[in-house]
Simulated assay, not measured.
Amino acid sequence: MDSASESPVEKHSKPAAERLKIVISIQDKDGQKQFRVYMDDMFERLFKMYADKAKLKVENLVFCFDGDKVDPTATPSSLEMEDGDMIEVNVKSS
């Protein structure tokens, strides 16, 4: 009887420890690239991953969501983003 009462507690405690992830698309002139990110991760991590993949310097990029520039210290959660949302990226003209 003891083991039956323990297992629901174990099952219940695991999901609470998992951080929520969503997929965000980054749209550039060549198309879309998808990234799986944590809801509480700062965008600077995502921007760096994109810049590395695109072989560009992150300082030369501007990221926008719903027409507004995205701050590198913001998170998907702070912008109330949902799975499948898209961020547009533009290269700054030098």
Rank of each mutant, 00 (worst) to 15 (best):
G84L: 01
K92H: 04
K57Q: 11
E18V: 13
L20W: 13
V9G: 04
T75P: 00
K33P: 03
Q27W: 15
S78M: 01
K11V: 15
F65W: 10
R19P: 02
K53E: 14
Y38D: 14
C64V: 06
Q32H: 13
N60E: 15
D2M: 08
L61N: 07
I87E: 04
M81R: 05
V91N: 04
S7V: 10
A4I: 07
L56H: 03
E59Q: 14
M39F: 08
A51V: 02
S7W: 14
G31E: 08
K92D: 06
A54K: 13
A17T: 12
P72N: 04
D40R: 02
M39H: 03
V91R: 08
E6V: 11
V62W: 06
D71Y: 06
I22M: 07
D2L: 09
D68Y: 12
V70N: 06
E82A: 06
D41H: 03
K29Y: 10
K33A: 07
V58M: 08
Y50L: 02
G31C: 04
V62D: 08
L61H: 04
D30K: 06
G84H: 05
E80V: 04
D68W: 08
I26P: 00
S5V: 14
H12P: 03
D85G: 02
M39T: 02
L61K: 07
S3H: 09
D66C: 05
P72D: 11
F63S: 09
V91I: 04
T73A: 15
R19V: 03
F47S: 05
I87H: 07
V62Q: 13
E6H: 13
S7P: 05
D28L: 05
D28F: 03
M49H: 10
E18S: 08
D71I: 10
T75S: 08
S77W: 15
P15G: 08
K48M: 11
S78Y: 08
S5R: 13
E80L: 05
D85C: 02
D28R: 03
D41K: 12
S25V: 08
P8W: 14
D28A: 01
D68M: 12
K21G: 01
V23N: 13
P15S: 02
S13N: 06
E18R: 12
G84T: 03
S77K: 15
M86Q: 13
F65C: 04
S5F: 14
V9E: 02
K69G: 03
K57G: 15
Q34Y: 03
K21F: 10
A54R: 03
V37Y: 00
F43D: 00
I22T: 11
L79F: 02
A4T: 12
A16F: 15
D2H: 15
E6L: 15
D71S: 09
E10C: 14
I24N: 02
H12A: 10
P72T: 11
S7G: 02
M81E: 13
M49S: 01
D28V: 05
A17H: 07
A17E: 13
F63I: 01
V9D: 04
L56N: 02
A51L: 00
D40M: 10
S25E: 09
M81T: 12
K55Y: 09
G84Q: 09
D66M: 09
F47W: 06
M49C: 04
D71K: 05
I26R: 00
S78T: 12
K33N: 06
A16R: 12
V89Q: 15
F43G: 03
